[in-house]
Amino acid sequence: MTFLQIIFLLFAAVILGSALMVVTTRNMIHAALWLIAALFGVAAVYALLNAGFLAVVQVVVYIGAIAILFIFAVMLTRREMRDKGPQLNKNWWMAALISVVTFGGLFGLLSNWAGFSKTAAEIPAGLDAVEQLGIALVSPDAYVLPFEVASILLLAALIGAVYVAFNKE
């Protein structure tokens, strides 16, 4: 096992552990903070894959914006609105069974698939991935349409949020 693999396993454990804490902790702010830990773990995995751009975007957008939005949303609620009910119902073993079976099935399928064990091609030296991404985003034979549609989608999200918040009558 190489040094990088050990680090990867460490971060995978952090992601899984934090994700578990998000759903089991009762304190909503703690849940949001554990979510941030999980998202940070994902950013670290991107960084290990040498995908620096995705790693920083993960931190900027998910931790810097979405997690802040979650915390604001939690703060807008009152303490009395906290969930006090039991965390498990009587069918929990069924859900656990289904998830274990699904995980086993996916694991079995993927381990037989050739693409799973293939290592990715080496990135040629001197290639600026961000620049390539930029060229692809606005090139007409690549992703220019999705790029502009993303803008429309963001516009729709903004208008929707403002409309919902301000049309009380």
Binding site: F53, V56, V57, V60
Partner: peptide, 20 residues
């Protein structure tokens, strides 16, 4: 880093988090 400027923003996000 080839993403230096976004890294500055990302470090700022951790600062915001510490204040919260």
């Amino acid at each position: 880093l080839n993403v230096g400027l976004l890294y500055i923003v990302a470090a700022g996000a951790i600062g915001t988090l510490s204040i919260i």
